Simulated scan of single mutants.
Amino acid sequence: MMNRVAALIFDVDGTLAETEEAHRYAFNRAFSESGLSWTWNQAIYRQLLKVSGGKERILAFAPDASPELVAGLHSRKNQIYTKMVASGQVSFRPGIESLISSARAQGLKLAIATTATRANVEALLGARKAFFHTIACAEDVRRKKPDPEVYALVLKRLDLAPDKCLVLEDSPNGLIAATALGLKVIVTPSLYTRGLDFSGACAVLPDLGGVTLARLIDLKG
């Protein structure tokens, strides 16, 4: 059974952990510290999440913002977010730790395909970073999801065909990016993506709590 899958590829925000509320808080605090009256409530942030990338979301909200302002806000937001992660305010979603352990025990490669920044990813992973064969982040690609560039890069680094990999995602943009290359995807919707269209996924599960690696591979087909 396991020879049907040689690697698991994980998205990060919303997939490994419910990070988006922490990101939203960090954005709002960065805005306030900069003297801006901007506030992203959940409804606004839900719409902005249709755009991949923090800087891109700021520009979607404020198209006239200068590059310097956008860069400064994004940098400060990331500082706030990484401190929140370091203080234990963000934890892995149900089933993630168990799945990683099972995959390692079975000899599967683990990979990250995200357009989050490397600093944010490494803050969340901590010592678990060593478990991953490759980690592809925003700094590694020019185009963000739903463009498949980050998944193409991960496949190249893994030296595996798409049919030997299984992707874990939480968003339509991630699903579109992965399936564009023929990758099979299991979706676990997060706080901000529940109820969205995940047509094309092998399965849509509330989370991975109690879901075994063997079950995920069966769902891949």
Rank of each mutant, 00 (worst) to 15 (best):
C165R: 08
P172S: 04
L205A: 13
P189Q: 05
Q106W: 07
A105N: 11
D159W: 01
K129N: 03
D170P: 05
W40K: 09
E149Y: 10
H133F: 09
T115K: 05
L160V: 00
R93I: 12
S52Q: 09
V185P: 05
L48C: 03
T212C: 12
L153Q: 06
L213D: 14
Y81C: 05
I44A: 06
A127W: 03
S190L: 10
R46D: 02
G209R: 10
R24H: 00
F92I: 10
R143T: 09
R57S: 02
A130M: 12
A17S: 11
V51I: 14
S102E: 15
D11N: 08
D197Y: 10
L48Y: 06
G95T: 14
A214N: 14
I44T: 07
R118S: 07
E21N: 11
V154D: 01
A201H: 09
R118C: 02
G210M: 12
G107I: 07
V90Y: 02
C137N: 08
R76Q: 13
F10C: 08
L8H: 09
A127N: 11
R29C: 00
S91V: 13
W38E: 11
D13M: 06
R76G: 09
V154Y: 02
G221C: 12
I176S: 10
V211H: 06
Y45A: 02
N41H: 07
R46Q: 07
T212H: 11
G195I: 13
I58Y: 14
K145V: 09
F132L: 05
I217V: 15
L213M: 13
Y192P: 12
D64H: 15
V12S: 03
L183Q: 06
R57V: 09
I80V: 15
R4Y: 00
L175Q: 08
T114K: 10
D163C: 04
A214Q: 15
D218K: 15
E20C: 04
A111N: 08
S52R: 01
L73K: 14
T188H: 07
N41M: 01
K184H: 15
A214C: 11
G35H: 01
E149Q: 15
D147F: 11
S102Q: 15
A152C: 03
I135M: 07
T115E: 08
Q79M: 09
A116E: 02
N78A: 11
E18W: 01
F10D: 02
K55W: 02
K83F: 00
L49Y: 03
Q106S: 13
V5S: 07
W40A: 06
V187L: 03
V185W: 06
V211P: 06
G54P: 05
K55Q: 15
A113M: 09
L124E: 01
I44Y: 00
L16K: 00
L183N: 08
K156M: 01
E20P: 04
I186Q: 11
F61G: 04
C165T: 11
T39C: 04
R118W: 01
L16A: 04
L49D: 02
S101Q: 15
R143D: 13
D147H: 14
V167E: 05
R46V: 00
N28M: 03
V70M: 11
A65F: 14
D64N: 14
K77I: 09
W38S: 05
A180V: 02
A136P: 02
K145Y: 05
S171L: 01
G126P: 04
V12R: 06
V167K: 06
A111D: 08
Q42P: 00
E139T: 03
G200P: 12
